[in-house]
Amino acid sequence: MKDEDLRDLNLPGYEIPPELAGQLAITTLDRVYNFGRRSSIWPMMFGLACCAIEMICAQAGRYDMARFGMEVMRPSPRQSDVMIVAGTVTKKMMPAIVRLYNQMAEPKYVVAMGACASGGGPFKEGYNVVAGIDKYLPVDVYIPGCPPTPQALVAGMIKLQEKIDKQSIKHVRWYDGKKEDSVAVAIPYLGPDLIDPRRIPEIKAKSMELAQPPAPAAEA
C-alpha cells in the first residue's frame, strides 16, 4: 500500500471499502499512534551556533512550540524524539552528534535547521566544517534560512508532524521484526583536521619546546 493511500485512511470520515474491512483496526490504531507521537515531539537540547538563538526564540513565549507539544527540551538523547541540528557542524562536532543520534531511542527524527546544517552554508568548502549533516545522518526535514525565523522553524516542525502522520505502525522500521530495531550510524572519522586527543601530550611537548628554545650551549 502506498503512502498516499495510508494518509487517506488516516483521515476521519473515510468510508472503509469491504476489501479493507480487515484492516480497519490497524488503521484506527495508526491514527491514535500517530496522534500521540506528533503531539509529543521532544527535541534534544543542544544548539551549535546562531540558529540555536532562533530555536530558543521559537521555544519562548512569543512563538511557543509548546502549542505543538514540542516544549520539553530533553538534555538526554534517551528521552528525545527529534534532533534539531541548529547551526554550523564542525568536523570536531560531527562524531559527537552521530554518537548522540545513535543513543536516541526509536522513533527518532533529524531536522537540519539552517543553511549550515543542511548544506554547509557559507562554509561549505571550509576545511573544518561538514558540508551538510546529511552526509552522515538521515535527515527528515531541511529548513533553509540563515538563520530560519522562529516561524520558519515552526513551519518545518509542522512538516515533520505531517511526515509522522503518514507513517503506519505496520511499516515503521522499529516494529518490523525483520529489520534492525534501531538505526545506528557509523561514527565518522573526519580526517587529519580532527585533533586526536591521544596526541595531546605530544603536541603539548612540541609547543613547549617551541615556546622555550633550548638554552645555548655552555660557553667554552
Binding site: S118, D134, Y142, T149
Partner: peptide, 10 residues
C-alpha cells in the same frame, strides 16, 4: 515566503 522547509535538499 519563509515556509520553505522540505523533505529533501532544497
Amino acid at each position: 515566503n519563509y515556509e520553505v522547509a522540505s523533505y529533501t535538499r532544497n
